[in-house]
Write a protein that binds this DNA or RNA. Structure first.
Lengths: 208, 208
DNA sequence: ATTTAGTTTAACAATATTGTTAATCCTGTG
DNA sequence: CACAGGATTAACAATATTGTTAAACTAAAT
C-alpha cells in the first residue's frame, strides 16, 4: 500500500514513544506498539531485539530532552529579573510541547534502579553547572539589595515545581470528557505561566 | 509458624499497598503480592477475586486520604497568614508520612480513564468547597490591602505544586545509593517546608 | 468425635506477553 | 533475468501472569 519501505524503524519508534509516554514501560505491550505503528509484531524485535532496548532508546532521549530544557532556559545572559522571567517562560513553553514528558521521566526514574543510576551520571554534572551560574547571579543581586538571599537549588526547585506541576494538573484536570475544550485548556496554561513568573519574582523581591 | 489465623486478608492488603504504591498497578504482579504477604498465591483471589478489585480498594482509600489532606489542612480558623502557614505545614507534614502517595494517585488517574471518572465524582464537590472558603478569605485580605489579588485555585495549586514536588524531588534525589543518609534527607525536607511557606507568603504580600 | 464453615494448599487452566524462526517478498544490481 | 540482501510475514515457542478448582486442613460448635 502506501507503506514506503525504509521508514519502518521510524514508525515503530514513533508509536513506541507515544505509548510509553502515555502508559509507561509496564503499561505498554509490544503488540500494541506494533498495531499502532501498523507493522508486523516481529519487526519490533527485528529492529530492536527487546522491549527494554526500544524503551531505553526512547527514555534516554527523553531524559536528555528534559534536562536540555533546563540548560537552554537558564543559560541566557540577561539582567537578573529578565533572565528569570525568560528562563521560567522558556521552560514552561518547552513543557507545553510535551506535557507528559516530566511525569514520564520522573516515574520511570523512581520505579527502576537501573534507570536512576544511568540518569544520575548524566544529570548531576550538568545540574551542578547550572547551579554554579545561578549561585553567582543570586549573590550579585543580594549584594545590590534587590532580592532576599536564597539557595540556587531552592530557586531552581521552586521553578521546576511550579512549572512541572502545572502540566501534571493539566493532565488531571483536562484528561476527562470533552466538556472542557481546547480553549479553556490554553487559557489555563496562559494563566499558569503568568502566575508562576509572578510568584517566583514576588517571592524574591525585598519588601520595604 | 507465627502465622496467626484471621489476619491473612490484612497481610495481603498491606503487601499490596506497599507494592502498588512502589511499582504502580501494571508493575505489580499478584504473585509478588502473595510472596510479600507470605501467603499462598490463590488466597489473593479467594479474598479479592481479581487484581483489579484489590487495587481499587487500595487506590480509592489512598485517593480519599490525599484529598483529606487538603481538607484538613485548609479548614482551620485562624488569621489569614497563620492559616496559610499552618495549612501549608500541615499539608507538608501529611505528605511526609507517605511520600509516594501523591505521585501514585496522580499517575493512576492519568493512566486509566475509569479511575479518572471515579475520582472526579469524589474530588470535585470537596474541592469546590475548599475553594469557596479560600476565595472569601482572600477577598477580605485584598480589601484590607495586605495581599495582592489572586484566584483561590491559583493559590491552592501553588501550594500543591511546591509541596507535592518536594516529595517527588525527594524520591529522585535520595532514591539512589546510601551516600546520602537519613540525616540529609530530613534536613532537605525541613528546608523545603520552610522555603514553601516563605515563598507563598512573600509572593502574596504587597510591596511598597 | 462429628460436623460445619471458613481457610489454605497444590496443581492446573487460560490467557497475555515477549521473543524466535524459517519461509517469503521486494528491490536494486550485475 | 537471476540473485543477493535486507525487509516482512505467519506461525510457532517460551515464559509470565492471572485466575480456577478440588482437595486438605483447622478450629469452633454440637
Amino acid at each position: 500500500m502506501e507503506q514506503k519501505t525504509g521508514n519502518t524503524e521510524q514508525l515503530i519508534l514513533e508509536a513506541a514513544e507515544k505509548l510509553f509516554m502515555e502508559k509507561g514501560y509496564n503499561g505498554t505491550k509490544t503488540l500494541d506498539i506494533a498495531k499502532n505503528a501498523g507493522v508486523n509484531h516481529a519487526l519490533i524485535h527485528y529492529y530492536f531485539r527487546t522491549k527494554e532496548n526500544l524503551f531505553s532508546q526512547i527514555f534516554e532521549q527523553k531524559a536528555a530532552q528534559l534536562l536540555g530544557f533546563f540548560v537552554d532556559a537558564f543559560n541566557k545572559d540577561y539582567p537578573f529579573f529578565e533572565k528569570l522571567k525568560i528562563g521560567i517562560e522558556t521552560h514552561f513553553d518547552f513543557l507545553s510541547q510535551t506535557p507528559e514528558l516530566p511525569l514520564f521521566v520522573l516515574n520511570e526514574i523512581i520505579k527502576d534502579k537501573n534507570r536512576r543510576n544511568y540518569i544520575y551520571k548524566k544529570i548531576f554534572p550538568i545540574g551542578e553547572e547550572i547551579l554554579k551560574r545561578m549561585t553567582k547571579a543570586i549573590a550579585e543581586e543580594v549584594c545590590k539589595g534587590t532580592i532576599r538571599p536564597i539557595k540556587a537549588s531552592d530557586l531552581l526547585l521552586n521553578i521546576a515545581s511550579l512549572n512541572v506541576f502545572a502540566f501534571v494538573a493539566l493532565q488531571v484536570l483536562f484528561a476527562t470528557d470533552e466538556d472542557r475544550q481546547k480553549e479553556e485548556y490554553v487559557k489555563f496554561l496562559e494563566e499558569r505561566k503568568k502566575n508562576n513568573v509572578e510568584l517566583i519574582i514576588n517571592g524574591l523581591k525585598i519588601k520595604n
